[in-house]
């Protein structure tokens, strides 16, 4: 039972709870009217300490479509945080007003601190370069929808694998499924952090290979997960500019890929996927956004223990 629980990382859900989450999302997609008043009278607090358009609007839309209400801030400078309030105090306060709290924070582990002090469930909507569970559920839901399975897959993860929290969360979650092969495509400066390599991948025994060129592995892939090289994760502009253009997917590269490979991206993209790829039937990053909202609707119903 997820009711009343905080969701800080994908592994906070058991395999059964994850399966149930996807099935609920399927049901919401098929029967949206059944859920239109599921969250009547409930309030979601969205505490976004750093900018986000997609995730914040996706959560807000999810809550509104369930009949609930949304309040919060989308910029720490417009809240009491700018006066130096601690996370613990902010959460204890907002917990008096909201039934569920969705939090994005630049500091890694901030949602865990929030959950330690919260009376209501906290959902991590991204903490620094660390975890982003609702994006992971979205990614898994997208793979499940367009590949029809979550096992026996060769998955390429490309771009910023060091600071890309969506990648870290996804790798962690994928270790649970059978016969997954990971191809980690990144420049040397942006390889996965040591804790992901040693404590997650090596420990789980998942098959993985680190490569420097996308072309080397493209023909093998069932899924290509592209990521943006994020400016805000760099300490200096020079490194950012140098690495930004390293890995760009275009139609020429798509010719090397299988006909049924799917391309995913957590968005927003900058230039790592050329616009010409958008019309390719294998491009599913906008479907991913749509599915993300339904997964978040399902997640809210679960942590609030709502009935359709």
């Amino acid at each position: 039972m997820l009711k009343g629980k905080s969701v800080l990382e994908p592994m906070d859900l058991t395999m059964e709870e994850m399966q149930d989450l996807f099935e609920t999302a399927d049901d919401i997609i098929a029967n949206p009217e059944k859920y239109a008043h599921a969250a009547d009278g409930k309030i979601m607090g969205t505490l976004f300490y750093e900018p986000s358009t997609r995730t914040r609007l996706s959560f807000a839309s999810a809550m509104l479509r369930l009949g609930g209400q949304v309040m919060g801030f989308s910029d720490a400078s417009s809240s009491s945080v700018s006066k130096g309030e601690s996370i613990a105090d902010t959460i204890r306060t907002v917990g008096c007003f909201a039934d569920v709290i969705v939090m994005r924070h630049p500091k890694e582990g901030a949602p865990r601190v929030a959950a330690e002090h919260s009376f209501v469930p906290v959902i991590n909507a991204g903490d620094g370069g660390h975890q982003h569970p609702s994006q992971t559920f979205t990614d898994l839901m997208t793979i499940r929808e367009y590949k029809g399975r979550l096992d026996n897959l060769t998955i390429g993860l490309c771009g910023d694998l060091m600071f890309g929290r969506t990648v870290h969360s996804l790798i962690k979650a994928l270790t649970r499924f059978k016969n997954i092969k990971l191809k980690l495509i990144s420049p040397e400066e942006l390889v996965v952090p040591e804790y992901i390599r040693n404590s997650i991948m090596k420990k789980s025994g998942i098959d993985f290979e680190e490569v420097r060129h996308m072309e080397d592995v493209l023909p093998e892939l069932d899924v290509l997960y592209m990521t943006r090289v994020q400016k805000e994760r760099f300490f200096n502009e020079e490194d950012y500019v140098r690495l930004r253009d390293s890995f760009i997917l275009d139609e020429a590269k798509m010719k090397l890929a299988k006909d049924d490979m799917i391309v995913m991206h957590p968005l927003p993209r900058v230039n790592e996927i050329a616009v010409e790829v958008d019309d390719d039937p294998r491009a599913h990053y906008f479907d991913q956004v749509r599915l993300g909202m339904y997964v978040r609707m399902a997640l809210i119903t679960k942590v609030l223990g709502l009935e359709a």
Partner: peptide, 11 residues
């Protein structure tokens, strides 16, 4: 880790 919450949250 300079991005860890322990570097900024009081107490």
């Amino acid at each position: 880790n300079p991005r860890c919450v322990t570097s900024s949250e009081r107490g």
